[in-house]
Simulated assay, not measured.
Amino acid sequence: MSRPTLVLLHGWGLSPAVWAPLAPLWPADFEIHTPALPGHADAPACGPALADWADALLPAIPPGAIVVGWSLGALLALDLARRHPAHIRALVLTGATPRFVQGNDWPCALDAATLTDFQAAFGASPEPTQRRFVALQSLGDQARRSVANTLGGALSPTGPAHLPALALGLELLAETDLRASLSTLQLPVRVLHGDKDTLMPVEAAIRLADQLPQGRLSVLAGSGHAPFLSRPQEWVSLLESFVRDCRS
């Protein structure tokens, strides 16, 4: 049997360096790929639609891989699974939601006005706004300081070559709504979510897992939006168990 292959998709404004603290924890037989999202780190930008971003990542995903998506990376993982079902073996979603902003029938999300203000602030002062977003992600976490430091050290550059793609990424967070497609995803999905996530409430993860035909949720106590950084051993252990079950 071939080695388990995982492709890890990071969140908005970050880089693949965010996964570095997990390197000592991966089982020896795991093959790990950590591509950068379009326009982040050293990756070229692409078209403006979520599908454009997902398709730009597709060449970095070996057939039959398990895709691990965090935050914006989770939206991309869901889109890849719905449009390329034969290519993806399973999903692991963390800090995830099918819709990032609130609506009349979706209260468990970020207030739309807050994100609009955030987009305007990023246009005026990209770097400070990017760091404010990191602070939001670590808010409520029992390991807040160490999580914030790790996220801060993994930020994507905000130079002129990166700004358009980063602004597009915020638009994707504001506009994407994948709820209608969840029931069509016929593959195993593990949702790992922090119970102290103030950016994306745990209720969003509960609803997400409930609407996925093969979805299962695990909540990590004391963790915020990046539970793989605040509870890395537990997070990797849950992921490994899921991967072994998928391959048995």
Results as ranks from 00 to 15, higher is better:
Arg3Ser: 13
Arg3Asn: 12
Leu6Val: 11
Val7Ile: 09
His10Val: 08
His10Phe: 08
Ser15Asn: 11
Ala17Gly: 13
Trp19Lys: 04
Trp19Ile: 05
Pro21Ala: 10
Ala23Asn: 14
Ala23Tyr: 05
Ala28Arg: 12
Ile32Arg: 13
His33Glu: 08
Thr34Met: 15
Pro35Arg: 08
Ala36Phe: 06
Ala36Cys: 09
Leu37Tyr: 05
Leu37Pro: 04
His40Ser: 08
Pro44Leu: 12
Pro48Ala: 07
Pro48Tyr: 00
Ala51Ser: 15
Trp53Gly: 04
Ala54Phe: 02
Ala56Asn: 04
Leu57His: 00
Leu57Met: 03
Leu57Ile: 01
Leu58Lys: 00
Leu58His: 01
Pro59Met: 04
Pro62Phe: 01
Ala65Asn: 05
Ile66Met: 08
Val67Gln: 01
Val68Glu: 09
Trp70Asp: 07
Gly73Tyr: 10
Leu76Phe: 04
Ala77Met: 05
Leu78Gly: 12
Leu80Met: 10
Ala81Tyr: 10
His84Thr: 05
Pro85Tyr: 02
Ala86Pro: 07
Arg89Gln: 15
Leu93Val: 06
Thr97Ala: 14
Val101Gly: 09
Gln102Cys: 12
Gly103Asn: 12
Asn104Gly: 13
Pro107Arg: 12
Pro107Asp: 12
Cys108Trp: 14
Ala109Ser: 13
Leu110Val: 13
Ala112Ser: 15
Ala113Ser: 15
Leu115His: 11
Gly123Ser: 14
Pro126Phe: 04
Pro126Ile: 06
Glu127Gln: 13
Thr129Gln: 05
Gln130Gly: 09
Arg131Lys: 14
Arg131Ala: 11
Arg132Tyr: 09
Arg132Glu: 08
Phe133Gly: 12
Val134Gly: 06
Ala135Gln: 15
Ala135Ser: 15
Gly140Val: 02
Gly140Phe: 09
Ser146Cys: 02
Val147Gly: 01
Val147Phe: 02
Leu151Asp: 06
Ser156Glu: 10
Pro157Val: 13
Thr158Ile: 08
Thr158Gly: 07
Thr158Leu: 06
Pro160Thr: 11
Pro164Trp: 03
Leu166Pro: 04
Ala167Arg: 15
Glu171Tyr: 00
Leu173Gly: 05
Leu173Phe: 03
Glu175Ser: 14
Leu178Glu: 02
Ala180Ile: 06
Ser183Ile: 09
Gln186Tyr: 05
Arg190Lys: 13
Leu192Ala: 06
Gly194Met: 06
Gly194Cys: 01
Asp195Met: 00
Asp195Gly: 01
Asp195Trp: 00
Asp197Cys: 00
Val202Gly: 00
Ala204Lys: 04
Ala205Cys: 03
Ala205Leu: 02
Ala209Leu: 11
Asp210Thr: 12
Gly215Ala: 14
Gly215Lys: 10
Gly215Gln: 10
Arg216Ala: 11
Val219Tyr: 02
Leu220Gly: 00
Ala221Leu: 05
Ala226Gln: 02
Ala226Phe: 00
Phe228Cys: 05
Leu229Ile: 01
Glu234Val: 13
Trp235Tyr: 07
Leu239Thr: 14
Ser241Leu: 11
Ser241Trp: 00
Phe242Ile: 07
Arg244Leu: 11
Arg244Asp: 08
Cys246Val: 10
Cys246Ala: 06
